[in-house]
């Protein structure tokens, strides 16, 4: 069997010692198109942060395989300072960071690729607009254009279709499908169960603890959904140290 794109080995990700993702083990195959679903506070975004390396596991380890060296990460919309005076062009161009780095010039070839990416998300003509003037959907399109340029093997999307109209999410979903066709590995945090059932073959249902992981229809079976819903959201301030052995 080929090496997995991602391997989780008894991973716990914690805020101030309180676990947000608790004892997760498993693997994601190269080329997978996987949804991560679960109630609010279930640790979905935290899991993505752990994969990118923005957060380090409190215990256990996350290993990226050779087919997942280049990672692109789409954070939740709210985490970007949109009052910063930056043009759409500059925002999207930063997708080329891996190639141009600190000083690289944006030459003819790069400029063409940026124009292509903007066209692919339907934002041609928006180059000079400050990002602060974009609507939520337009901003998400711009961020997808940046993802396009990053040309990553592993793509992590945190609620990519939240608060976005039907047409925009359909357009962006087409891009996701295109990436899937190009054998990239995709992990997306989502809330729309219909969309997950329709478009994502594999699903991880998580409620701090992993509840179910596998083929989407099976993972989202009613008994699993019920179990996830029973998760207690609040931290127990008097919780004891966890001594569960590695499975």
């Amino acid at each position: 069997m080929a090496e997995p794109a991602l391997r989780f080995d008894d991973v716990t990700l914690a805020y101030d010692r309180h676990p947000a993702v608790h004892h997760l083990s498993g693997r994601i195959e190269p080329g997978a198109l996987m949804a991560v679903v679960g109630p609010n506070g279930a640790g979905k975004s935290t899991l993505l942060k752990g994969i990118v390396g923005v957060m380090n596991p409190a215990s256990g380890s996350i290993a990226r395989g050779p087919s997942a060296r280049r990672v692109a990460y789409l954070p939740q919309l709210a985490e970007i300072d949109r009052s910063f005076p930056m043009s759409v062009y500059d925002l999207v161009a930063m997708g080329l960071w891996g190639r141009i780095g600190l000083f690289g010039r944006i030459g003819r070839k790069e400029a063409d690729r940026i124009a292509e990416a903007l066209a692919a998300v339907g934002l041609s003509g928006f180059e000079r607009r400050p990002i602060g003037t974009l609507s939520g959907g337009q901003m998400q399109r711009a961020l997808f254009a940046r993802l396009l340029l990053q040309d990553a093997e592993l793509i992590l999307l945190d609620e990519p279709f939240a608060a976005i109209d039907a047409r925009t999410s359909a357009d962006l979903l087409d891009l996701v499908r295109r990436w899937h066709g190009e054998k990239r590995t995709i992990v997306a945090v989502l809330h729309d169960m219909d969309l997950v059932r329709r478009a994502f073959p594999e699903t991880l249902l998580i409620a701090r603890e992993p509840v179910a992981w596998g083929e989407t229809a099976a993972a989202l079976a009613p008994e699993n959904m019920l179990k996830a819903r029973r998760m207690i959201e609040a931290f127990d301030p008097n919780a004891h140290a966890c001594h569960r052995d590695a499975a």
């Binding site: 990672v71 985490e79 500059d90 930063m94 600190l102 990002i131 990053q150």
Partner: peptide, 20 residues
Amino acid sequence: LIYRPLALECADPNFLRSVS
């Protein structure tokens, strides 16, 4: 020297962390 990462660190620190 640091213009590009500095602007990025102001606007979108998570992205900067994900690429570097």
